[in-house]
Design a protein around this nucleic acid. Structure first.
Lengths: 146, 146
DNA sequence: ATCCCTGCAAAGCCTTTGCAAACCT
DNA sequence: AGGTTTGCAAAGGCTTTGCAGGGAT
């Protein structure tokens, strides 16, 4: 889904805002795209497959830049570290089951009734950041969730 | 809203589950009720107005117990520490504006279309834990949100 | 030649944990 | 008396920051 057109796109956008194009920034973006929903630490692991010298602080700083550019987003899917995902995936929000820990990505259409109502009351929701916790009606609990 | 009936109620529930009634637990619960939405650290501050010896680790452990008993709930209203609020407030979810940082508590009714739809698909949402980030259509940004 | 970006190391928040003393029942 | 709870102190995740060297433009 991310072809050469999009690639040059974000590199230009990077420069347009005065940022420089570095190997680290390319690697972090690619790692996020390949991993799906990944924590900064997991991103670092993926990046280090290509270059062992990259530092965790660079990953944090880069993820911040990429999010500012609208290339990635983060969501809080657990009580631990946040996860980052590429925006080239369609925008979506998340369902997280506290029993089986499963994460489901849901189309924003489902939220329309809610967002319409909130907008009528003067609030524009950030759908891409939304996470709904709860539990599946049928699921197998994992070990952690005694 | 929290009369003597409710008070004895939770004390009994505490004992019924094998927990002991301690001054710390009473003070922490009262602090949460009085503060509205408060971080563990803020709860500690309030508790220490009555007893300077109480420790932060006790606050954490107590909030966990109180939440297990269904007396308080927590929500993530910022990128920092979570906030706890009493359940004797009606159940609600939160709207947080990223411009003015205002927090609005909203009646769960507004979510009905969403939760119905999710339940039809086999997912029961934890409404009381939900926080929707976004921005007011009319609001004055605060200093922090450059 | 700039001055942005990175790696490194240290510090910072927030939270959890081990342990002995104190306390509730 | 007996097991629970607390305070204290230390450790543990995760994230941020200061700084000097290295690198993109």
């Amino acid at each position: 889904m991310a072809g050469p057109a999009e690639s040059s796109d974000w590199r230009e956008r990077l420069r347009a805002r005065g940022y420089r194009l570095t190997p680290q920034r390319e690697m972090v973006l690619r790692a996020v795209e390949e991993l799906g929903h990944a924590t900064p630490d997991e991103v670092l692991g993926k990046v280090r497959e290509q270059s062992a010298a990259v530092n965790i602080s660079t990953v944090y700083r880069t993820l911040e830049v990429l999010e500012e550019l609208g290339l990635v987003r983060h969501a809080h899917l657990s009580d631990r570290a946040p996860t980052y995902h590429s925006i080239s995936d369609h925008e979506h929000f998340h369902l997280v089951c506290r029993n089986c820990q499963k994460v489901v990505s849901v189309d924003p259409d489902v939220l329309k009734p809610l967002t319409d109502r909130l907008e009528a009351d003067g609030f524009v929701a950030d759908v891409g950041h939304l996470t709904v916790f709860g539990h599946c009606t049928t699921c197998t609990p994992t070990e952690e969730s005694s």
